[in-house]
């Protein structure tokens, strides 16, 4: 999150609604360690990343949903998921993300 600080403050100052997605847990092999952070704003701009590009597209879709509803939730991506064919990690691990609005 540290590396996104300047941009996040700029977005906030410009009045954007923002969703933060953070890797909070990794089982097995995962591309990014816990703490890796991605942010999406209400015009679809993106900062940072939570994987090696494997799941970012799906995270943007989820983030847009959260911008609408304001809820917070955990989502997981892994090889064994039903979504594995569409969205998943090729490295075989599972990552757990926490998504929330930046309203704090």
């Amino acid at each position: 999150m540290r590396e996104l600080l300047d941009d996040l403050e700029r977005w906030k100052a410009a009045g954007h609604e923002i969703v933060i997605a953070r890797v909070v847990d990794v089982e097995g092999s995962g591309p990014r360690a816990p703490g890796a952070t991605m942010a999406v704003n209400d015009v679809g701009e993106v900062l940072g990343s939570v994987s090696g590009g494997c799941v970012e597209g799906a995270v943007i879709t989820e983030a847009m949903e959260i911008l609408r509803t304001g809820e917070r939730r955990m989502i997981s991506f892994g090889y064994s998921d039903d979504e594995a064919i569409e969205v998943g990690l090729t490295c075989g691990g599972t990552i757990h993300l926490f998504l929330e609005p930046l309203d704090w």
Binding site: M1, L5, L8, E9, K12, L102, D103, W104
Partner: peptide, 11 residues
């Protein structure tokens, strides 16, 4: 508390 924790973190 909206906005305060983030700005405290930034500080």
């Amino acid at each position: 508390m909206a906005g305060q924790l983030f700005s405290q973190l930034a500080t």
